[in-house]
Amino acid sequence: MTETRTFTDMEQIICTSSRLMNGDKLYFTAIGGPPLVAVLLAKRLHAPALAYIVEDGTIAPQVSLPAPPFLIAASGASYRAASWTDMNTVSFHAGLGYIDYGVLAAVQVDQYGNFNSTFVGPAYERPARRFGGPGGANEIASLCWRTILMTRQQGRKFVKKLDFMSSPGYLDGSPSARERAGLPPDTGPWRVVTETAVFDFDEGTRKIRLQALAPWATVDDVVAEMEFEPLVAPTLENIDVPSEEELAVLRAEVDPTGRTIRGRWITVELEGDSARLVEQEAPAEGA
């Protein structure tokens, strides 16, 4: 019995990320985009007790779904929160060690999980493309115990050298590099999630390591979309493709305008635990 399923690369990234989240943990998420959508999906489907804070000071809101359009500037985003505070207060809470996970998106990631959201291009003064800046990512990636990063599996995103390090991973990878830079100990990137892979970080070297693989992709497929060769775990876990339920909830309730979940289409044929790639769109320019 086979069936086909069609989803976007971003839907896969969001579903995989949301499955990493638990109801008994506290999350600090970017105010919009894939991180917030992944958190909302987890909360809606398998972790209703999950609580998250946002850098505008909102603590543990209960967004009613379907999410209102333009959620980043809608009162629905902070609806029925446990507390409305301010940016400094929620940073203090992260600094005190309350926040288990930060959830963030990245433009570029390097082998130590450092990431860029400032610019790409040859030089600071002459960016090929300038982005908004770190926003709250620097403090979230520094202060939360663990960080989940979400990005697409593309060579230009997994780079040998970042054009600009906006936010810290394990810095140069040396022991205690984060502590020497003034960051709290025992913190750092935990998972990097793409449409075909999940990476963790090797404890000894703090280098990024392929940990799980989509059933329709190979290790070579993943490594082909990286500028550097990652470590590979001895046993790779399997990433489930988005379930029909996940896709239905994402599309109808969590991101009904489709602004965040859009991406390149992937169609797979499912048979038991295996999935065969039927077709996929080429990455869009600038995506």
């Binding site: 450092n114 600071y124 620097n138 520094s142 390090m165 906006s166 810290p168 810095l171 590099a177 830079a181």
Partner: peptide, 13 residues
């Protein structure tokens, strides 16, 4: 004092 910024290019700039 604060416990972030350090180690990054944001710090340098």
């Amino acid at each position: 004092p604060l416990r972030y910024l350090g180690g990054t290019d944001v710090f340098k700039f």
